[in-house]
Nucleic acid binder design. Structure first.
Lengths: 195, 195, 195, 195
DNA sequence: GATGAATGAGGTTTCATTCAT
DNA sequence: GATGAATGAAACCTCATTCAT
């Protein structure tokens, strides 16, 4: 009976994201989103014309958020980036669960795939640029900064995946050792530069 | 050992895996599996009591296959392991798509998660052992061999994820540079050992 | 006399008619009408209280138009009436499509049915009167002028139906032969009258 | 819970036809058909994969029935054909209501349209052949037998439409006068042939 | 052992309609 | 006078599951 109860599109997306992670792809139904948001299914259809549109909006939202993070990343240094990655890397991490769910969905949805791909490449590049700030040269001769960015990012995602699968995954320990490796690489870099 | 007009359990699993990757989680229906296998839905129910059972069988199958690979890995050396990882790391890679789909499913299914987790830890360990064969000592002081195994594995998965998302991901180039890093680490390891 | 940014009732009816023929009964939704008219659904409700009211207005509109035609028909002769019928009798004819759609709707809506019935009877009568002008007597003994009107009208509608169903229906040829029959009947009429 | 209760596809079509005429296009829902047939909606979907398929099956059924009638028509004579037409031409006539509903649906569905068109042409031809049996020559010079078939058929449909719209349409009277016209035309035909 | 017709719960989607603004 | 966000009922459709055969 048409009371404008002021649930904005953005809020709906937030509710949808929560639903998605809470219920998993399988049980991610529009009814669930509607119930969570306290509106009727019709309302969802008024804002997003299909379920796919809602999913795409979720990806867009993730991407926008990520862009914001990335745009900040030029100023903060690698250590902070890693700290941030670690914080998102825990059993039940909202962000990575969402990302993997979306990756799974992307296999059959090019639009989703393209958007995720874009954000991933942007993250790779942001990482490369950060590395440039602390490394005068590539620590290993023949390995481009671009590649370092790709690999660091890959490792962050890979560790997150392991953490999501394994309840007692030693996040603390692994990240600590990871930072030691970075330190060692930084030393190598300086030696390389000296030559 | 297929029966005259029948389909063996193992064959059904194979068909199911194909369906899953071909159709995606969303459209992975028992009817689709039945159609692909050329049997009726009833037949599937004869072999698996529920859809979940079928899914679990798929994970088990993946794991068995992986165990076999791992058991071999004790004998083959790191380079071959990486070559194998690379070969599975391409846009549309069947194996990694399946693995990510299963990971996504695992978030809401503890049995699946436990199995995937086990296999992942086994792989981590196999990698550690392989590294021990070529590294006399850890290349970086304070980083355990265990951690190196975890991180290498993480990177392989992370790279696969990027490759699945990005059509023109430079697999060749990245893996080549990855191998250069390993070489450099091997040198470092030798220096460490010499001290 | 359209208001600045508004849409008059008459215009809405016109848009609705177009929608109905363009989209068919199935997809004839108030949203479609609103979109076509460039207004919102609310606006339609301002002018028509229900969808049924809009439908009825469409029938009324058709009928009014038809009354106008009929009122003219007393002056123009049969040949012109037939030419007019022929022109409306082509594959994709707007008018007859609308009429048949309305007839289909009328089966479950007495108001619509009554209005369509009235206009049909008026057309029958108008045809009879026209025939009286060119026929001194009924060409066939025992057949009333009223019946001739009914039958001529029936044939015009029946031919239209065939033309709507069959893409390559030979409208030209059939109408030409129809006129020859009328001529023959006119001769008969004169003979009858002479007796 | 899966009791085969033996509702055949053919029976479902019959129930669907009844529903269609009883409820009209608008209210022709699969639930209604299911309820009428005493099965669940799922059953309908087991037999017909979509609503459109069910509609098409209805048309096919009408057409098959009509083919049967037509195949008989080569033997029975015109008078009987007209008697049959008259019997189907009454207020609430099941057959013609169905036919007009389908014609309305056909405007937006080429498959339906093509099938209806075919049956109509077959009927036209069957009528022509029947006329040949009682008319030694065309009653009006220059009017082909083919055209007579088309026009007779058109008139039968047109009269049915009027009868469906008008409760007190004088079917008896009109058909009686129609037969008189045929008689007159038969006389004309004989005169023509004599020349 | 295998089938396939049938189910029923629940999914996505549509749409006439309402009402605060 | 006009809007458009919101509704809720009901539409079409899917699918895991059952069971007589």
């Amino acid at each position: 009976m048409a009371k404008p109860n002021g649930v904005s599109k953005q809020e709906l997306i937030q509710y949808a994201k929560e639903c998605l992670v809470e219920k998993g792809t399988e049980k991610f139904t529009l009814r669930a989103v509607a119930d969570t948001a306290g509106v009727t299914q019709g309302t969802i259809y008024y804002h997003f014309r299909t379920k796919e549109q809602l999913l795409l909006s979720i990806v867009e939202d993730i991407c926008e958020k990520s862009w914001y993070e990335i745009s900040k990343s030029n100023t903060y240094v690698l250590k902070q980036a890693i700290a941030s990655a670690k914080s998102r890397c825990s059993y039940n991490s909202f962000f990575h669960q969402l990302f993997i769910l979306m990756t799974a969905a992307s296999f059959k949805n090019e639009k989703i795939r393209n958007q995720l791909s874009e954000i991933m490449q942007a993250e790779n590049q942001a990482l490369s640029e950060n590395l440039l700030k602390i490394w005068p040269a590539s620590p290993v001769h023949g390995v481009s900064m671009e590649a370092w960015g790709i690999m660091f990012n890959a490792m962050v995602d890979g560790l997150a995946m392991q953490a999501l699968l394994q309840k007692d995954f030693p996040v603390e320990k692994v990240y600590q050792e990871f930072e030691q490796i970075i330190e060692a690489l930084t030393n190598l870099s300086e030696k390389e530069a000296a030559e």
